[in-house]
Design a protein around this nucleic acid. Structure first.
Length: 216
DNA sequence: GGCCAGGACACCA
DNA sequence: TGGTGTCATGGC
């Protein structure tokens, strides 16, 4: 069978080039812990707002799971306020920190984390879990976000009403389980969505030949 | 001033 | 099991 998902990957990669997303990236390589925090803070939130929240956490030196548990939930909420849903996310960050430290250390968590148990942590859904497993733990879990659903439904590779697991299975079945490939693919999908949104459609220069036009 | 952004969860029928 | 409301800031 012709591998359509890989074909889309190649088209995007050819058009946009290497994305250098964390933690593989070029200049700035955040520590794995910050990748986990970013995955939680970016829930339904623009990344520019997440960066402001991360900068506040660095400014107050709340840069480890231990520090996050030591901080008061209210103080944590104020630090992450720019990322929105701050009360909810402050509680989620503390709950996640507690879970991570139950492994003994962040390094042990990164090595031994499993999707099934991660999903039991309050505030960690499928996308956040897979983002953490892929970008922090370096394990080959394909991340399915809202862009992935819209784009691949539009080009006709997944059903409009397909659920998270179904879409993830589509990619993981059709491509080799490769952490670097999944990392780059997800980054390219986000890049396509950024460049080709309702306000500034790429139209003629869209790598998917306009099939994903209108709104991604 | 409205819409949207790299979701998840509680609640209800 | 699926649909709906809620959480909330900042950029355009």
């Amino acid at each position: 069978m012709e591998n359509k998902s890989l074909e889309v990957y190649k088209l995007l990669h050819k058009s946009f080039g290497q994305q250098h997303w964390w933690p593989m990236g070029g200049g700035f390589r955040p520590r794995e812990w910050e990748v986990c925090v970013g995955a939680i803070l970016t829930q339904n939130t623009a990344w520019t707002n997440v960066e402001k929240a991360l900068a506040n956490l660095r400014k107050h030196k709340v840069v480890t799971a231990e520090k996050m548990l030591q901080a008061k939930t209210n103080d944590l909420a104020i630090m992450i306020k720019p990322s929105g849903y701050y009360n909810q996310k402050a509680a989620r960050l503390r709950g996640f920190s507690e879970y991570v430290l139950s492994f003994g250390s962040v390094q042990k968590f990164l090595k031994n984390a499993g999707r099934h148990d991660l999903l039991k942590v309050k505030g960690i859904g499928p996308e956040t879990a897979d983002s953490i497993l892929l970008y922090a733990c370096g394990k080959p879990h394909f991340v399915v976000d809202a862009y992935t659903k819209r784009i691949f439904a539009r080009v006709g590779l997944v059903k409009n009403n397909a659920g998270y697991d179904e879409i993830q299975k589509f990619f993981e079945k059709n491509m080799k389980k490769d952490e670097k490939l999944y990392n780059e693919f997800h980054a390219l999908i986000v890049e396509l969505a950024k460049r080709h949104c309702k306000k500034k459609p790429l139209c003629k220069s869209c790598p998917l030949e306009g099939k994903c036009a209108k709104r991604i």
